[in-house]
Design a protein around this nucleic acid. Structure first.
Lengths: 228, 228
DNA sequence: TTGCCCTAACTGTGATCTCAGATCGCGCGC
DNA sequence: GCGCGCGATCTGAGATCACAGTTAGGGCAA
């Protein structure tokens, strides 16, 4: 290594607050955090081995992203949406995620299409795992590969915030059988989605995403999970 | 007042962090904060008469909302968007704000329609003021009355975050003449918008909002304000 | 004059403490 | 048995301090 070597990437360590934010994000998306769960900051700080400051920062971020709410007694919690609010969230997701899917069908690079195929295969494989985490993660990865292929960073951020709100509801820990029935539907729709992108068919891509979102939402709304 | 009196609203004082967040939000939306402006937290804390803690919280929120960015040297700043990024932001705004306008045209209550008329009149009046603040505020109020009439709280929050990003660019302090030319266009489009809502015409409402957003964006892009 | 180095000041991040409000549990009185 | 009051504990918000990285300015050498 000489002084002419320009290939060294500058090292930037993620702040503790960012790391806490990432950890909480993962807990929201995976369903580990459930609607109405409290987030006791001192306890979480102890659990993560940091002081309360980075936890506060991370929580403040997630409150701003509407992924957490401050209750009237100042407690911070995962929002418990009413059925109506969940429907609203679903509609806004459909509106933005179908748009991203259509853009992706038009703009995806060959490498992105290949990555989508791989993600589809990975999702299928994750369905065989005994616990839900691999399939939840594989589902998220496939969707975000798709949305990133839309070529709109702003749209991806909008969708990311929506997923933070939806994650605890959609990924509630279900019994194995229920989950298997649910994800078989997604499996088929993901297949159609990837085919639509390959075929450069924006309408089919949007339709597949919409069906995926709606089937997941109808499943939640068909069960007595959310208050009226 | 007796012990049977149920009309007393519980008093809840906004936290200092929330107040700082509101103050910064206003500064972003009004154009007082410009792209690439730094936000020195200690200085702002002193200026607002609080310690640095609530400023940190507020800044963390706005970073999460993408309204502020953390630079590689850790400084917090108003994002300086490239022309491409601004176009992306504009497209996502069009996609969501037209949707909200169409929903509003379908769902607005008579009271909301009346409030829109009033906001239109207030905007016209604010155009006569010698400085830009009243018209910037009146513009925002009219738009958010409209979007709230859509009946989708999630959609309003998405739009709010988009406005936080767009505010510093769109509301850059302009000379009087330039601003007058700009806002005369908005004036006409706002009129069409209110008529479309009154007429329950979703397509006309969406078209008016799109034209409003695009004309403001094209104005910015036509000037050498943003980097390529 | 220019470039490099050093030092002081600035700045965000994290730690810790204090305060005030909320909650919970227990005891007492009706 | 139930309700109320009190005290202890918990909890988030705010203040303050320390640390480490960054920046800017000044001085010196080539």
């Amino acid at each position: 290594m000489t002084s002419q070597d320009k290939t060294i990437t500058p090292l930037r360590v993620a702040s503790l607050a960012s790391q806490v934010h990432d950890a909480l994000t993962e807990m929201l998306l995976s369903g580990e955090l459930r609607p109405d769960d409290r987030i006791p900051m001192r306890e979480l700080a102890e659990r993560l081995g940091v002081s309360v400051m980075p936890v506060r920062d991370a929580v403040a971020r997630l409150v701003a992203q509407q992924a957490l709410v401050v209750l009237p007694n100042r407690a911070v919690a995962v929002p418990l949406l009413t059925r109506g609010q969940f429907r609203d969230l679903t509609e806004v997701r459909v509106h933005n995620e179908t748009h991203a899917a259509a853009l992706a069908a038009r703009h995806a690079t060959p490498a992105q299409v290949a990555a989508l195929r791989q993600a589809d295969a990975a999702f299928a494989q994750a369905l065989g795992a005994p616990d839900a985490k691999p399939s939840v993660r594989a589902n998220k990865e496939l969707h975000f590969l798709l949305y990133e292929a839309a070529g709109s960073a702003v749209l991806v951020e909008v969708i990311r915030a929506l997923w933070l709100k939806a994650g605890p509801i959609i990924n509630l820990d279900l019994e194995q059988d229920t989950r298997r029935r649910r994800t078989a539907v997604s499996r088929a729709l993901h297949g159609q989605l990837v085919q639509a992108v390959e075929a450069r068919d924006p309408q089919a891509a949007a339709d597949a995403v919409e069906a995926d979102i709606r089937s997941a939402a109808e499943f939640i709304l068909s069960r007595d999970i959310l208050p009226a």
